[in-house]
Amino acid sequence: MKPDLSVQIGSIHLQNPVLAASGTFGYGEEVDLFDVNLLGGIVTKGLSPKPRMGNPPPRIVETGAGMLNTIGLENVGVEAFVREKLPRIGHLKAAIIANVFGGTVEDYVTVAQRLEGEKGIAALELNISCPNVHQGGMEFGNDPGLAAEVVRAVKRATRFPVIVKLSPNVTDVRLVAKAVEDAGADALSLINTIPGMAVDVYTRRPLLKNITGGLSGPAIKPIAIRMVWQVSKVVSIPIIGIGGIATARDALEFLIAGASAVQVGTANFYEPLTMPRILSGLEEFLHSQEIPSIRNLIGTLQV
């Protein structure tokens, strides 16, 4: 018998627990190397009220088992997304999750309002790893109060389920997780990239134009799993695990540690078939271990 890979993220039903992470799969229409309908979901590039050009190059640099990026949240803006991108992906079996970011609470609300009621969207994911322009650039995700304020405001503006994407750039991720759960978040996703830096020793310049960037890829996986596990102990809403996932075994680690689904990011760049391979790997694992459903594994860490 074919094992059951379907999972539930609050009210969202996913045909399987493997999603493409925001900013690592375009708007879901760029990749033609496999059938994207196989996926559990696709999280779009982050959307803002207006289009954004992004940061000057160089924007990426490879590091040990990882990479740094300063794309600068380049995106087409919510209006062009709804008019040009959504019609091309809204019919997919993979759930479309619109990733939203802003520099102010109003930005988040503006994007949520524009997306409200649009067909083909399954949920919103709020990227709160963004500097708040009214608070001296302090990240929303760094402050439980600010994070909760964004969530409450967006919840009032939308009927879509709201997933809050947590920043690892905090002393205790559990405090923000708890605060956004209390503010009405339907699910959590974690982690976003970790701030990092690399230097050219000959020119003595930073290797990124923006000096610092976000670290992603296999290098961050142990940190991400630790945070998923910590958060799963203190919240009762579902968690989507993100960070360095490249194989079925990586995905299984996250699920066992407490995630109900996973997102794959950087691996899509260097191994475009990562997600379909994870899916077949999960099936094989369940089959060989005689486990009927992937749901039997979620949060089963033995300590």
């Binding site: 900013g23 690592t24 799969f25 375009g26 760029e30 990749v31 190397l33 590039k45 050009m53 992004g54 000057p56 190059p57 160089p58 924007r59 990426i60 640099v61 490879e62 990479m67 990026n69 794309i71 380049e74 899509n268 760049f269 260097y270 475009p272």
Partner: peptide
């Protein structure tokens, strides 16, 4: 030439500065 993350348009890491009709674009 320049650094590339994916090579097929999904990472937006390879932007280069271009002038189109006098306007600066990536």
């Amino acid at each position: 030439e320049g650094p590339m993350g994916c090579g097929f348009g999904i990472c937006l890491g390879c932007s280069v500065e271009i002038f189109e009709k006098g306007e600066r674009k990536y």
